[in-house]
Amino acid sequence: MRFNRKGTTKIKFLPTVASAALLPTRAEITAGNDLTQGIHTLDGWTIENQAIPTPDMGSTFVPKIDGDDEAADSSLGFYEDNTLDDIETDLAKGTTGFMCIFSKGDVPSGKGLDVFPVKVASNSKQYTADSEAAKILVQFVITDLPAQNQTVPAAV
């Protein structure tokens, strides 16, 4: 059944995930920081393949083979809080951890959990003279192959 990601998808930042398979425990998820409410935009969070052209003299068509995988440039846009500085401190430049995207919600035993090992590349306020809410853009580098479409750990 089709659904709207807004109101369903949850995004949490976990400082640690002990599993080499990048499957967090329920305790690690609970200890993480739920970022969902403050996010106004997200970009990237995909794996892209760098296809390799393989032309030959037998045809004017250029076929391709799959090449290396790489992570798309990824970021989260947040609304800035005028009293708290959680985003500025919790996601300061250089911070490492794991971005967990529960695409179908944080539903125990459900599918759709993507876990990206990340490092914060930049954390910058977005200044504007326009009439809009204050914003912060946090850019991430994905430091290793993510675990995609995993089963959400059961509640303890």
Rank of each mutant, 00 (worst) to 15 (best):
T54W: 07
L76G: 00
G67K: 03
L42Q: 10
N49Y: 05
P55Y: 02
D43N: 13
D56Q: 03
E48Y: 08
S59Q: 07
L76V: 02
G67M: 06
W45K: 00
E48F: 06
A71C: 09
A71N: 02
W45H: 00
P63I: 03
T54Q: 14
V62S: 04
P55A: 05
P53E: 15
P55E: 05
F61L: 10
G77S: 12
N49H: 10
D43T: 08
D66C: 00
G67W: 05
A51E: 11
L42K: 05
A51H: 06
H40D: 11
S75Q: 12
G44H: 02
T60Y: 08
G44N: 02
T60G: 08
E48D: 15
T41L: 10
L42T: 06
P53L: 10
F61A: 11
D56P: 00
W45L: 01
S59C: 07
Q50C: 11
D69H: 11
K64Y: 11
D43H: 08
I65T: 13
T60Q: 09
D68S: 15
D69I: 09
P55V: 03
P63D: 07
S75R: 06
V62T: 14
E70M: 14
I52N: 02
S74K: 01
T60K: 07
S75H: 06
V62Y: 01
K64C: 04
S75V: 04
